[in-house]
Design a protein around this nucleic acid. Structure first.
Lengths: 402, 402
DNA sequence: GAAAGTAAATTTAGATTCAATATAAATGTA
DNA sequence: TACATTTATATTGAATCTAAATTTACTTTC
């Protein structure tokens, strides 16, 4: 933020450089003339800024300029482009049972990833941090990147995180998530770690590459095992004072909902309930516990019991969506998480049911990001940080003449 | 917003002037040395900026400098202060049945006001606008101010208003509120009119001068006849896409609530219900319809029926507060509006009941602003606009040498 | 192949703004 | 009256921007 910088002439260069960099992030290799048109700066200033950015490592100047663009008259234009390999960011999903780390370049392209389940013994903070560090190292190796190139890390956890990135342990349980990951990775790796709630990251992720692309007012409901939501309003995450905005515990009081179990959990439970009766259903043929997937598959094939479960799920989800959407008035409500792949069939019945609860029903969608919605959001969150702070960050290898 | 201004050297002066003005708004008459300490600028720059602001009418230089401050050594310091009469703002509350307009100086001090009920015939937009214009004129007269001195107007209406200040007519009913007030007053008076939802203004008002002073995450529930709420998160109003964030219609689905009637309405209704039975109560002695006030008074005197009503009200409000606070995690929930004066007695039972619904109950308060909560918020909203845009606004009488 | 045309790059001049330093002014105190 | 203290003003220098003039590098045309 340039707010804290004093109003010296250098501030001007900062503002100009920020504008140029922002344009370059949204463009491929461009000419100075392009940059001038986008920023309103003069040619002299634009060139000075671009060369400044090249010197600092954020921008590359292309050789063989004539290769680009069809226009061939006049003196060949120099071409500048964002150095998308100036550094990388890490997006982490720290779940109950496993850790996933994604390595991304500055344009958000995935360069590598690694995912490992926690071992039984790894319960202490120390062990968990070491484990996470290990997965991060593996992900970096798979991308062929060095730890020194990491510009920012964002980690998603299933606990409330306030807007300063601190885990708020409102209940003892959440304390488990306050691993001290930030100071630890700062110390050993020199990395800046941003913590964020997993549902919030899901919202950022889906808004970036999912169903809510470009939408500024959206609620994303993670709905697999437990219901939780991330709220984006006016393009910004809504955290609340202690980071627990988006929590859906109030559903205990909503008729027809009554708890915060998610779709996968309920599908399993209700299927088991049905099997305890004499109702005829193809689900009886399943070996072992009936999983949510199988309920959805059976429903597609017309199984009455499965269809009944879908019906109840749709009714429930419509109530959940209806309450959240009424209070927050998003443009879109997205259902995401591991169950999203199969939840597509719920979309129409939910929308239908929704009309009964509210006069102006919200649009509902299922996220195409599936299980990776949290890591995608974590990458976005880390990139947001880097983009906000580019001009204050030092790059590992600025302007190394090859 | 300085974002759109190109990065010319003049931008620097803008930034400096903004910083100085911001400091002056929070101070009384100050010396250049004070300003230097607050802004980090040098003496020369500070003086140039101050004189600039004096020339443009936003700042006054005090005579008889020695009157201020105890320190008497050295060359007497010049004293600068905000010209709080550089202009005025209007805060309007456009209710169902009446219009209130408050005139405020730039420090938020009330200079005058006027309030009038709509006449029976005044239903068309044209008539209503003329009526509102008349009340504004009367308020200005009572303040001894001219229409040309109005720098901004903010009007609160009981309809959804999006973040651009447009009334969103999601239901035909709201269309009534889209009077075209903004273009009309721009044309006839030259005024910039900001529209905003009344509950949202209540939130701004209470955060400024009420129970939520200085709190960045707060929900204010207007609770007299109908329940509605204004949400502030991270210091910013939450509007949603179409301006209807904060609507509580979802309460129809919440057990023990079931509708969105407010405290005053329910107190009246339930009192009437009780009187239709044979229950012994002092409320029987009331002439005509029993008003909410009287229920509260009777309860204070130990009347069993009235106490029962309070109990039901507290339970309801606790459910409302509990649901909203769980989803949004505010630091404080404020109950405001016309009923607030008497609702103080509900505070303790609501808080008690809240503990049953949620593990981490929100703090609850009643706004001290009573009926004027909306106009106070409207003034704040208009002042916010003026403060954001000072450097772009032309003053009516800049630097008139007396 | 030389001349003309075109668009970009570079140079130069001028203005604004700020910091830093030096100097002047106004007041109180010895 | 001399001196200390604080503020005000003037001067200088550096960074930055715009605008206009000039140079460069390439293409097209004759």
């Amino acid at each position: 933020m340039p707010e804290l910088v004093p109003a010296t002439p250098q501030l001007l260069r900062r503002v100009s450089a920020g504008a140029v960099l922002e344009f370059l992030r949204a463009s491929a290799a461009v000419t100075v003339t392009d940059v001038m048109a986008a920023t309103g700066l003069t040619r002299a200033t634009t060139i000075a800024v671009c060369e400044d950015l090249v010197r600092r490592g954020w921008v590359l100047e292309r050789e063989n300029q004539r290769e680009f663009g069809g226009y061939q008259k006049g003196r060949p234009a120099r071409r500048f482009e964002l150095n998308e390999r100036a550094g990388v960011v890490l997006g982490m999903d720290i779940g109950y049972s496993k850790v996933t780390v994604v390595v991304s370049d500055l344009r958000g392209r995935t360069l590598g990833r690694s995912s490992r389940p926690f071992q039984a013994g790894e319960v202490g903070s120390r062990e968990r941090i070491a484990f996470i560090d290990g997965v991060a190292g593996a992900a970096l190796s798979s991308a062929g990147m060095e730890p020194g190139q990491v510009l920012a890390v964002c980690a998603g956890v299933a606990a409330p995180v306030d807007r300063h990135g601190d885990v708020v342990a409102t209940q003892e349980f959440w304390g488990l998530f306050d691993l001290g990951l930030r100071p630890a990775l700062k110390e050993t790796r020199g990395w800046t770690v941003l913590l964020e709630n997993d549902a919030n990251l899901a919202a950022l992720g889906d808004r970036w590459q999912g169903a809510a692309a470009g939408i500024d007012d959206v609620v994303v409901i993670l709905a697999s095992e437990r219901l939780g939501s991330g709220i984006v309003e006016g393009g910004r995450l809504v955290h609340g004072t202690r980071g627990s905005a988006g929590e859906l515990a109030y559903l205990d009081l909503v008729e027809g909902v009554g708890d915060t179990y998610g779709i996968a959990h309920l599908a399993r439970t209700w299927a088991a309930d049905a099997l305890a009766t004499t109702a005829p259903t193809t689900l009886r043929s399943v070996q072992g516990r009936v999983e949510a997937e199988q309920v959805f598959t059976a429903a597609e094939q017309g199984d009455a019991v499965a269809l009944g479960i879908l019906d109840r799920l749709a009714d429930r989800m419509a109530r959940v969506v209806g309450t959240v959407a009424t209070l927050l008035n998003p443009e879109l409500v997205v259902i995401g998480g591991g169950v999203a792949d199969s939840a597509g069939v719920l979309l129409r019945p939910i929308s239908e049911r929704l009309k009964e609860f509210t006069a102006t029903p919200a649009r509902v969608a299922v996220s195409p990001l599936g299980d990776s919605i949290v890591t995608v959001g974590a990458v976005r969150c880390a990139l947001d940080y880097v983009e906000r702070n580019s001009l204050d960050l030092e790059l590992a290898a600025p302007a190394t003449p090859a």
